[in-house]
C-alpha cells in the first residue's frame, strides 16, 4: 500500500509538449511511472515519447482511462488546467507550476472541492511512491520503498531528508511535496489522515517552514488523533520577519508564522523535533530502527 499514487495509477501529463513537460515525462517513464497520455490543446494526434497526445483531458480520460494528472503548464494557464482535470473526472491532480495567482487558487479550490478532486501543489515537486510511481520532478534514485511517509512544503529540502532516510536504511511509503504557496491543495492534515489508514506507513516525517500556521494545525491534529511516530523539522529559524523567503507562502507576518512557534507546537504535540537538519535521518533511524 501507499497513498495517492501507485503502480496502478493511469497518468496523463498536461503540458506534455512543453520543454519542462517533455523533460520530466521522460524521467517519469524511465522511473517506471504508469504514464498513459499527454494533453496540449491543439496538438491532438501527435505522439510524444510514444504517448498519444490529446486536445482535452476529457479525451485522454475517455481514450486511455487516465485517473491521475500532472500539470506542467505555465502559471497563467495552470488554474484552468487543474479545473479541466477535475471536470474530466481525474481523481488526483498534481500541479508543479510556480507563481499561480492566489485568487486563481481560491477559485480552483472551490471548483475541485465541488467535484471531489484531490490536488497536490501548486509550486511543488510532486508525489512519489518509491518503486511504483514518480509523479513529479524529484530525483527518483534517492528514494527506496519502505515505511516512512514524508510530507513537506519544500522541494530540494525534501530530497535532502529523503536522501538521509535512505542512507540511514529507511525507505519511504509515499513522499509528498505539498507546495510552497499560501493556498495549496492537500494539507498536512489531509495527508496524515491517509497515512493513518495506510498499513505500509509506520512513521511520518513532517517538513515545514515559516509562514502560515499549517504546522501548528498539523501538530494539534497529531496530538489528538495520530498514533504513528512523527518526526518534524521547520526551516527558517533565522528568517527575518516581513520578507518572502523564495516561496510565496514563506513569510513571517508580524508575529505570525515564526519557526520557533511551529517547533514549540510540534514538541507540545509529542512530535520528535529535529533542529539540525543534518541529523534528520539518523534521528529517525535511532527511534524506529534503520
Amino acid at each position: 500500500m501507499s497513498i495517492l499514487v501507485n503502480k496502478n495509477s493511469r497518468v496523463v501529463v498536461q503540458g506534455i509538449t512543453g520543454k519542462e513537460g517533455m523533460f520530466h515525462t521522460e524521467k517519469m517513464i524511465e522511473y517506471g511511472s504508469p504514464v498513459v497520455a499527454g494533453v496540449t490543446p491543439g496538438k491532438a494526434g501527435q505522439a510524444v515519447l510514444n504517448l498519444p497526445v490529446f486536445n482535452t483531458v476529457a479525451d485522454a480520460v475517455k481514450q486511455t482511462g487516465a485517473d491521475t494528472s500532472i500539470c506542467f503548464v505555465p502559471a497563467a494557464f495552470a488554474a484552468d488546467a487543474a479545473c479541466e482535470a477535475s471536470d474530466a473526472g481525474i481523481k488526483v491532480v498534481v500541479v508543479i507550476s510556480e507563481h499561480i495567482p492566489v485568487m486563481d487558487m481560491i477559485r480552483v479550490k472551490a471548483y475541485l472541492k465541488a467535484r471531489g478532486t484531490l490536488m497536490v501543489g501548486p509550486n511543488c515537486p510532486g508525489v512519489i511512491t518509491p518503486g511504483e510511481c514518480k509523479l513529479g520532478i524529484m530525483p527518483g534514485y534517492i528514494h527506496r520503498p519502505g515505511s516512512v511517509g514524508v510530507i513537506s512544503r519544500s522541494g530540494t529540502l525534501t530530497y535532502e531528508v529523503v536522501d538521509q532516510l535512505t542512507k540511514a536504511g529507511l525507505g519511504q511509503s509515499t513522499c509528498i511535496g505539498i507546495g510552497g504557496d499560501p493556498i495549496i491543495g492537500l494539507h498536512f492534515i489531509d495527508l496524515l489522515k491517509m497515512f493513518a489508514d495506510d498499513p505500509q506507513t509506520q512513521a511520518v516525517a513532517l517538513i515545514g517552514e515559516i509562514g502560515g500556521d499549517a504546522e501548528e494545525r498539523a501538530a494539534a491534529y497529531i496530538k489528538e488523533h495520530f498514533k504513528k511516530p512523527v518526526f518534524g523539522f521547520v526551516a527558517g529559524l533565522t528568517a527575518p520577519p516581513g520578507k518572502r523567503m523564495g516561496h510565496a507562502g514563506a513569510i513571517i507576518s508580524g508575529s505570525k508564522g515564526r519557526a520557533e512557534d511551529k517547533l514549540a507546537a510540534m514538541e507540545a504535540a509529542g512530535i520528535t523535533v529535529v533542529k539540525a537538519l543534518g541529523q534528520f535521518g539518523a534521528t529517525v533511524a535511532k527511534a524506529i530502527g534503520g
Partner: peptide, 26 residues
C-alpha cells in the same frame, strides 16, 4: 543554495554552528 526550503535550512545550520548567514539565496 538551490531551493527555498533548503536555503532557509542552510542559513539555520550556519547559525547553529556559531556563524551568521549574510544572505538567503535560492
Amino acid at each position: 543554495v538551490n531551493g527555498a526550503g533548503l536555503a532557509m535550512a542552510t542559513m539555520d545550520v550556519i547559525k547553529m554552528a556559531g556563524a551568521e548567514p549574510a544572505n538567503f539565496l535560492d
